[in-house]
Simulated scan of single mutants.
Amino acid sequence: MVPFSTLIRTASQEQHTEAETSAFMGDLLGGRLGLEAYVRYTEQLWFVYRALEDEAGRLADDPVAGPFLRPELARTEALERDLAHLRGGRPGRAPLPATAAYAGRITQVRREWPGGYVAHHYTRYLGDLSGGQIIRGTAERIWGFARRGDGVRFYTFEEIANPAAFKREYRARLDAIPVDEPEKQRIVEECRHAFALNTAVFRELGEEFAHGA
C-alpha cells in the first residue's frame, strides 16, 4: 500500500504546481510588485487562517482531525501582528470573492467533515513550513523587513525548532489517519479542491495588480 502521505502529495501535485507558479506569485517573488501587493496577500491569508483556526478546538477530540491540531502551527495571531505593522490593524476591507469562497469552504468542512478539514490543514500548514519560507526571505530582502520580525511573522514558526522533523511527524500522522480507502480518496479530492481555491485567490490578486501596482 502506498503511504497516505505519499498519495496525497502525488495526487495533488498538478494543482500544487499550478498554485505555486501563478502569475501573481511569480511577480511577487520576482520583485515586480510593490509592497501593497504583499499587504493585500497577507490580508487574504488572515481570512483563510481565521476560518482554519476559529473554533478548531472543537475538533481536539476527533480521531481524524484531532491529531493535527498543534498549537505551534497557529498563525492568526502572527498574521494580526504582521497586519498591525503593515496596515495598522486587521483588514479594513472585505475579502476578495475568491478568498471568501475559500474561507467559506474551510468553515464548512471544519464544522461538518473532519477529513475535509485535514485536507485544508495539510495544504496550508505544510506549505507554510516549506514554500512559505521563500516568500519570507523575499519579503525581507525586497521590502527590508527585519529578519523574522514584524511583517513576516506569519512565516516564522518560533515554536518549531526542527521543521524537517516536524514535517516527518506530520506525514506519519497522515499515514496513520483512521479512515478507510474511500474516505482517503475523498480527502485527496478535497486537497485538490483546496489548491484550486488558493489558485483562484492568486488569480484575483493578479487581476488587481495586473499593472504592477
Rank of each mutant, 00 (worst) to 15 (best):
R124Q: 14
Q108I: 05
F157E: 00
V64T: 14
Y102E: 01
E140Q: 14
G131H: 06
P67K: 08
D61G: 15
L83F: 10
A84S: 13
G137F: 03
L96S: 07
G137E: 08
E43Q: 15
A100C: 03
P97C: 07
R147Q: 12
E158Y: 03
R110F: 07
T76V: 15
P97D: 01
V118A: 08
V118D: 01
G115N: 09
A78P: 00
W113I: 09
F68S: 02
G131N: 08
D61N: 15
E72L: 07
R141K: 09
L59T: 13
P97S: 09
L59F: 13
R81D: 10
Y155F: 15
H85A: 15
R148D: 15
E80R: 13
L86M: 13
H85Q: 10
Y49N: 01
W46T: 11
D150W: 06
D54N: 15
F47I: 05
L83G: 02
E140G: 03
R90K: 14
R153P: 00
G127A: 10
G137R: 14
Y125K: 00
A65C: 14
L73Y: 10
Q108C: 09
Y155L: 06
R141Y: 05
A56R: 12
E80G: 03
R50D: 11
R105N: 04
A103C: 02
A119T: 13
T138M: 08
V64I: 15
W143T: 02
W46N: 05
A84R: 13
E72N: 08
P91Q: 07
L79W: 02
G151W: 02
G127F: 08
V118T: 09
F154P: 00
G116A: 10
R75G: 03
G151Q: 01
V118N: 00
R105K: 13
P67E: 12
A146N: 04
R153C: 06
D62G: 12
